[in-house]
C-alpha cells in the first residue's frame, strides 16, 4: 500500500505544486488520479519513486518512508510508464524490456527470457523483440513501455498518462489490455490522466484533483458519475453522466427471450455455427448488433437494442453464437431495476 501523509511540494520559486496530500492507495487495485493540467497529479505520482522529493510530509510504501531507501533500489522495485514510452533508442525491444532485470544483476539469458515472456504478455508478436523502438508504432512502443515496467515483477506500477499520445482506437485497445493485465496480475497501480473517461474506465477508485493537489472527490467510478461531490466535479465529469454510468453496469441483468422465427416481419439470419449474420425483411438487410451478457455493459445492450431495426438486441456467447434476444423494453426494464449501488461491474467494453 502507498500512503501519502501531508505530502507537499513547494518549488524553490515559491509556487505550490501540492499543498499537502493525505491519501491511501490500496494494494492490488487501480487508483486513478485525474484532474486538469497543473493540478499536481504528476508531481504526486513522482513522489512515490522519489523523482520528486516532498518539501513537507512523507510518502510510505508498505509502511516504510520512501526517503529511507536508496533511490536506485527503491526505483527498481517500482514500475514506471510514461506518455512517450521513453524507450532507449539504441537498444532492441527485448533489451529495453530486460533493463531492470539486468540492473538487478540477472544474467543476460535469463533477463531476455523474462523479457520475451513479457512481450507476449502485453500482446506483441515475437518478431518485435529484435526491432529497435523507432521501428515500432506509437501503440507498440507503449506496450513495450508497459512490458519494461513489469519486467522485474514490481508490486507497484506508476503510470503517467501512458496512453495520451496514441490515437483513440489504439488507446481503447491499450486500456482493454491494461484491464486484462491487471485482472491477471493484481498490481498496486497508481495511474495519472487528465481524461475522465479513461479514469472511470480503468480505476477501481478515482481521485478527482483540483489545483495544488487537493482532493475534490475520492470514489469508485459509479459513485463518481451518479453522485459528484460538488458542482466543480460535476462540471469536470461533463455531460451524459447517467448514460456513461450505464457503461459500468453489467448487461447480465437484462432478461433474455428465446430466439423467435420472426420479429414483426424481421427475421434474424444465422450462419451455420449459429452466429447472427443480419436482420432480413423481404429484400432488406441490416447488420445485427449484438452484446455479450457476461462481458458487456448495460450501455452496450441498450446501444445494440437501439441500433437493431427490429428493436431487439441479440445476445451472444463467448463464441459469438446467438443465445437469445432482448427487446428495448427488456433493456429499459433492466435499467429501471438496477439499484444505485454497483455490484461486480464490468468495464465499458467496446
Amino acid at each position: 500500500m502507498i500512503r501519502f501523509e501531508g505530502a507537499a511540494k513547494r518549488h524553490p520559486d515559491g509556487t505550490v505544486a501540492v499543498r499537502g496530500l493525505d491519501l491511501d492507495v490500496p494494494a492490488g487495485r487501480t487508483t486513478v488520479l485525474v484532474g486538469p493540467s497543473g493540478c499536481g497529479k504528476t508531481t504526486i505520482l513522482r513522489m512515490v519513486n522519489r523523482m520528486v522529493v516532498p518539501t513537507a510530509g512523507r510518502v510510505l510504501l508498505d509502511g516504510a518512508d520512501v526517503a529511507s531507501l536508496p533511490a536506485a533500489r527503491l526505483r527498481r522495485g517500482i514500475g514506471y510508464v510514461i506518455q512517450q514510452a521513453g524507450l532507449f533508442p539504441h537498444r532492441r525491444v527485448i533489451d529495453n524490456v530486460a533493463t531492470v532485470p539486468r540492473l538487478l544483476g540477472w544474467d543476460r539469458k535469463r533477463a531476455r527470457a523474462r523479457a520475451a515472456e513479457l512481450l507476449e504478455l502485453v500482446g506483441l508478436p515475437p518478431e518485435t523483440a529484435r526491432r529497435y523502438p523507432a521501428q515500432l508504432s506509437g501503440g507498440q512502443q507503449q506496450r513495450v513501455g508497459v512490458a519494461r515496467a513489469l519486467a522485474a515483477d514490481p508490486p507497484v506500477l506508476l503510470m503517467d498518462e501512458p496512453f495520451s499520445a496514441v490515437d483513440p482506437l489504439v488507446r481503447a485497445g491499450l486500456q482493454e489490455e491494461l484491464l486484462r493485465l491487471q485482472a491477471e496480475l493484481g498490481k498496486t497501480v497508481l495511474f495519472v490522466t487528465h481524461d475522465i473517461e479513461e479514469a472511470v474506465r480503468l480505476g477501481d477508485r478515482v481521485v478527482v484533483l483540483r489545483e495544488h493537489g487537493e482532493i475534490a472527490q475520492l470514489a469508485d467510478p459509479h459513485t463518481l458519475l451518479t453522485a459528484p461531490a460538488d458542482a466543480g466535479v460535476a462540471a469536470f465529469l461533463g455531460r451524459d453522466r447517467g448514460l456513461r454510468g450505464l457503461g459500468l453496469r453489467p448487461a447480465g441483468a437484462v432478461p433474455l427471450a428465446a430466439l423467435r422465427p420472426s420479429y414483426d416481419a424481421w427475421e434474424l439470419v444465422l450462419d451455420q455455427e449459429g452466429r447472427p449474420e443480419h436482420w432480413r425483411r423481404g429484400g432488406e438487410r441490416h447488420p445485427a448488433p449484438v452484446f455479450a451478457p457476461d462481458r458487456d455493459s448495460l450501455r452496450s445492450a441498450l446501444d445494440a437494442a437501439l441500433l437493431a431495426p427490429s428493436g431487439h438486441a441479440v445476445a451472444v456467447d463467448a463464441e459469438g453464437r446467438a443465445v437469445g434476444t432482448a427487446s428495448r423494453a427488456a433493456v429499459v426494464e433492466a435499467l429501471a431495476a438496477a439499484g444505485p449501488v454497483p455490484g461486480q461491474v464490468p468495464h465499458a467494453g467496446r
Binding site: A72, G86, L103, R148
Partner: peptide, 15 residues
C-alpha cells in the same frame, strides 16, 4: 537524448 528517455532511465534505477 529525449527527456522521456532520461526520465525513464532514472525511474528504472540508473544513477
Amino acid at each position: 537524448v529525449p527527456e522521456p528517455v532520461r526520465q525513464a532511465a532514472t525511474a528504472m534505477g540508473y544513477g
